[in-house]
Computed example of a mutant assay.
Amino acid sequence: MGGTGDGTAVTARDFGLEGPRGWAFRGVRVDAGPGALIAIEGPSGSGRTCLLLALTGRMKATEGTATVGGARLPKRLAAVRRVSALANVTGVTDLDPALTVGEHLRERALLQRRFGGSVRGLLRPRAERVTEARLRVDTALAAAGLDPETLPKGARTAVRDLERLEALRLSIALALIGRPLLLGLDDADLKLSAAERADVWALLTSLTEAGTTVVAVCSEAPEGAIAVTARPIPDTDTDTDTGAGVATGTGMASGTESGAATDTKAAAEADAKTDTKTDTNTDDEAKEAADALAETGRA
């Protein structure tokens, strides 16, 4: 699935991230066109999530380069974040189990209106803004294959009452509200039956066919996807690069079980640190975000 849509191309050359406890991933090489499905496969703890966060501008690589939508990493992190969105990343995009599906959707639409649109858009009549928000939500739900009317209590169904696949679809829908060129999805096949995994890959394929480039973390890449294999690096003092040298259109990553930030808490902290270093208006943005969240009752 090389991709010919309106998404963004993703390339990487000898891409790596080293932290205080060793390499999270190293020697990654990817060459994927717009609208491609990129599957980062491997066991838990092999650096999969760190690589996902690095390719979407949420973590700063320490070796090599990558290009996403013309923006070169690791320097232009903010530019990559503007065209990408994350779904189902524990510690980063967690759903609140106490909130309903409808509340999550309204909150994301509000945040998108406040921070994802133009100043001119904010000045439009309220009726137009409401219509635009509803259209974004409906389009995202349709693309994610989630119909709230089929849930036990409709849009009033609490997240804690959702099945695993339903929660995954909701997380994807929330990410799609921002109409990203690149969607990053973690644990795409975790705790799913074979039939459910097939449904997820069919969903992600449909997104790529509609033009969105998708990077998905999984235990095993589906047939036809551009596979990037994450595997543990032996804990040695040598500088051997075990993840280099792969063909165009494929990728290989390697990482350590105790890598730089493989647990999600560390990943989230790294995301926050990266934002602080790359954005000069971080404090102002955080205050605005808090104000927006206050409007939703989640401040």
Rank of each mutant, 00 (worst) to 15 (best):
L95F: 03
L95A: 05
L95T: 00
L95W: 01
D96R: 12
D96T: 10
D96P: 03
P97F: 00
A98Y: 08
A98G: 13
A98W: 06
L99R: 15
L99M: 10
V101N: 03
V101K: 01
G102I: 04
G102P: 04
G102L: 12
E103Q: 15
E103S: 13
H104S: 10
H104M: 12
L105Q: 05
R106E: 14
R106C: 01
R108I: 15
A109K: 04
A109Q: 03
A109M: 09
L110K: 09
L111W: 04
L111Q: 15
L111S: 11
Q112H: 14
Q112N: 14
Q112P: 01
Q112M: 11
F115P: 01
F115G: 09
G116C: 12
G116D: 13
G117C: 04
G117S: 09
S118Q: 00
S118F: 09
S118D: 12
R120W: 14
R120E: 09
R120F: 14
R120P: 06
G121L: 02
G121N: 10
G121S: 10
L123W: 15
L123P: 11
R124K: 15
R124E: 05
P125I: 02
P125C: 05
R126F: 07
R126M: 10
A127R: 10
R129S: 14
R129F: 03
R129Y: 00
V130Y: 00
V130D: 10
A133N: 12
R134M: 13
R134Q: 14
R134L: 05
R134H: 07
L135H: 08
L135T: 04
L135K: 00
V137R: 00
V137E: 06
D138V: 08
D138G: 02
T139P: 03
T139M: 07
T139K: 04
T139C: 07
A140L: 06
A140Q: 13
A140C: 13
L141A: 00
L141I: 03
A143H: 05
A143W: 09
A143M: 12
A144R: 13
A144W: 00
G145R: 06
L146N: 06
L146P: 03
D147R: 09
D147N: 15
E149S: 15
E149V: 12
T150S: 09
T150E: 06
T150Y: 03
T150A: 13
L151R: 06
L151F: 08
L151P: 07
K153F: 13
K153Y: 11
G154K: 14
G154F: 15
A155P: 11
R156P: 06
T157S: 01
A158Y: 00
A158S: 00
V159R: 00
R160D: 02
D161T: 04
D161A: 02
D161L: 01
E163P: 03
E163C: 04
E163T: 12
R164L: 14
L165F: 02
E166P: 07
E166S: 09
A167C: 06
L168E: 08
R169S: 00
L170Q: 07
S171V: 02
S171K: 07
S171R: 11
S171Q: 11
I172N: 09
I172K: 05
A173P: 08
L174R: 15
L174T: 13
L174N: 06
L174I: 13
A175W: 11
L176A: 04
I177M: 02
G178F: 00
G178M: 04
R179V: 15
P180Y: 08
P180N: 11
L182R: 11
L183C: 10
L183W: 13
G184L: 02
G184Y: 10
L185Y: 05
L185N: 03
D186V: 07
